[in-house]
Amino acid sequence: MKYMLLLYRDESRFTRTDNDMSAPYIAYTQALIGAGVLAGGDRLQPVETASTVRQVNGETTVLDGPYADSKEQLGGFFIIDVPDLDSALQWAARCPGATQGSVEVRPLWMMPKPA
């Protein structure tokens, strides 16, 4: 089953050139690859580059930045393919993001493949 690990952190604690966490993330990614469970993932640009799009009564509105105002922002994600939730939680606990903020674990809703 596929799960998305959503990495949240306080962006104000990091600078754009902060590479202190690069080595742990590289090691974690290599562990995911070595275990054959990595299905995708990437780091996101800073939250100020985000746009939020809404459709209300047929009218589109676009807001700069995230809609939610919270201390921790979504900073990246991994998609893993593991047997069950317990396995996904174990991988989430090993993620460097768990020491800097939080890692939300969500199962993917698998869409049927087009005919």
Rank of each mutant, 00 (worst) to 15 (best):
G101A: 02
A115W: 10
G75S: 10
T52W: 08
Q100W: 05
A98V: 04
V62K: 11
Y67N: 04
A93R: 09
G76E: 02
A68H: 09
T29H: 08
P83V: 06
S22C: 14
L74Q: 03
G40P: 06
S87R: 14
P107Q: 07
V56H: 14
E104T: 02
D81Q: 12
T60M: 15
A50C: 06
L44T: 03
R9D: 00
G58E: 09
T17F: 11
V53Y: 07
V47G: 08
L5W: 00
V82M: 06
A27D: 04
L108H: 03
V47N: 09
W109S: 14
A23V: 07
M1S: 14
K2A: 09
I80H: 05
A31L: 07
L38R: 11
Q30I: 04
R106D: 02
S51G: 09
R13D: 01
D64I: 06
G34A: 14
A115C: 09
Q30H: 11
P24K: 02
D64N: 13
L108G: 04
Y25F: 13
E72N: 08
Q55L: 15
Y25N: 05
D42H: 12
G36A: 15
L38D: 10
E48P: 06
L38E: 08
P112C: 10
A68E: 11
P83F: 06
E104N: 03
E104F: 01
A93T: 06
R94K: 15
A23D: 09
G65N: 05
V82A: 07
L108A: 10
